[in-house]
Computed example of a mutant assay.
Amino acid sequence: MNMKIWFITGASRGLGCEIARAALESGDQVVATARKPEQAEVELAGQAGGRLLTLKLDVTNQASIDAAVDAASKRFGRIDVLVNNAGYGQLGAFEQQSLADIDRQFATNVFGVFAVTRAVLPLMRAQRSGLVFTVSSTGGLAGAEGGSVYCATKHALEGWSESLRIELAQFGIKTTLIEPGFFRTDFLDPSSVFYGDIAISDYANYSAGVRDYLDQMNHQQAGDPAKLGKALVTLAASDDPPVRFAASSDAYDILIDRAERNRAEADQWRELSMSTAVAE
């Protein structure tokens, strides 16, 4: 079967929209879901030629997820590629994040991904095929200052997706983590990013510096969302997509640096590590 059915969350703008656009341009059919699906319709309908279905979906609402997956199944009969893209950044120093903000970040970035994937997997198991893309981040590879909570959610997705890949291999289903660096989207816009609101004087200068740096980077990022969309189409056509895909040169550098630092640190402490084994 050449034509694939894509199911994409957070497809009204940014990376999700460009992934949907690239899939449509390749001749595939797309279910573009978002909290505001009318935005996806405006962005994508002109090139769809009847191959687009836009649906309302809130990843924190189980009824919304079930309704969208059911509508997609009734329209297309299958889902070949799931793209877990919906998410946002909760930034700032850890101590400045309220528990409510942390709960909300995990509800969207982690448990929302879990819920959508759980709803789609029965279809893929029945097909004995499928590919689950999960948009992580370089923040899932390495910690970043001012991003402790956000990075925690992405690290969670890393371990989950890699483990899921092993569990699902028996059904012909693959998983790939997409690890973007900085892409030119509205991720850092006030409509997308949130900062901790607990005022702590010790962090005042630090937090102001982090926020100023990110504000200056906004819409100056090096990554091209359209090119990332095309890259995912290429990955979806592969018989053996990678466990993780570093998207953009900065992500590649972080991935390699993390691997080298892990090896160097492990070698530095090897003797102590070996000493903890039970003596034979």
Rank of each mutant, 00 (worst) to 15 (best):
E158F: 07
A86V: 04
S12M: 12
L99A: 10
V243C: 08
L177D: 05
G50C: 14
M274I: 08
L214K: 06
A251N: 04
N205P: 06
L168P: 07
R165P: 05
K230A: 15
I198Y: 01
Y203E: 00
E95W: 05
G209F: 06
G16C: 01
D101I: 00
A222Q: 11
I166Y: 10
A93E: 13
E145Q: 12
C17V: 00
Y195E: 10
G92D: 01
A72C: 06
S163A: 15
E41M: 14
A126E: 14
R21Y: 09
L228I: 02
S98Y: 02
K227A: 15
V59Q: 03
D212G: 15
P122K: 11
C151L: 00
L99F: 05
E179P: 01
D240I: 07
R211T: 08
V69K: 10
L228S: 04
H155R: 07
R165C: 09
N262M: 13
A277Y: 09
A48W: 07
A93T: 14
R270C: 08
M217P: 00
Y213R: 15
L255I: 00
L214D: 00
A277E: 13
D224V: 15
S98R: 03
V30L: 05
L44A: 12
Q170L: 08
D224R: 15
V30H: 06
L57I: 06
F133N: 02
A277M: 11
P242L: 10
D197V: 14
D28V: 06
A247P: 04
I178M: 08
L214W: 07
G27S: 14
D80N: 14
S98M: 03
L55R: 05
F183V: 13
L157V: 00
D212C: 13
W6P: 06
G146I: 04
G10R: 02
S98E: 01
A40N: 07
Y150E: 09
A126I: 05
F111P: 06
G112E: 01
V210N: 09
Y206F: 11
A86K: 02
D58P: 08
L272C: 03
I178V: 14
D212R: 15
I8N: 09
D202N: 15
Y206W: 02
L214P: 02
G16L: 01
L52E: 00
L131D: 02
G139V: 01
T234K: 15
L164R: 11
A169R: 03
I65V: 12
T138D: 08
A119M: 10
G92Q: 00
Q39R: 14
T175R: 10
R75A: 15
G46P: 11
A237P: 02
N262H: 12
D239M: 09
S207H: 13
R51K: 13
L82E: 05
S161L: 04
G229Y: 09
I79N: 08
V42R: 15
R261F: 06
P37I: 08
T117C: 11
N218M: 11
G10K: 01
F183T: 11
H219V: 02
C151G: 01
K230H: 09
I19V: 15
A71P: 12
S238N: 10
A222F: 08
D197A: 15
V135Y: 01
S137Q: 03
A266V: 10
P180R: 12
G16H: 03
A222S: 13
F76N: 04
L57P: 08
I178N: 03
H155W: 11
D212Y: 13
V120L: 02
A34K: 10
E162N: 11
T60P: 01
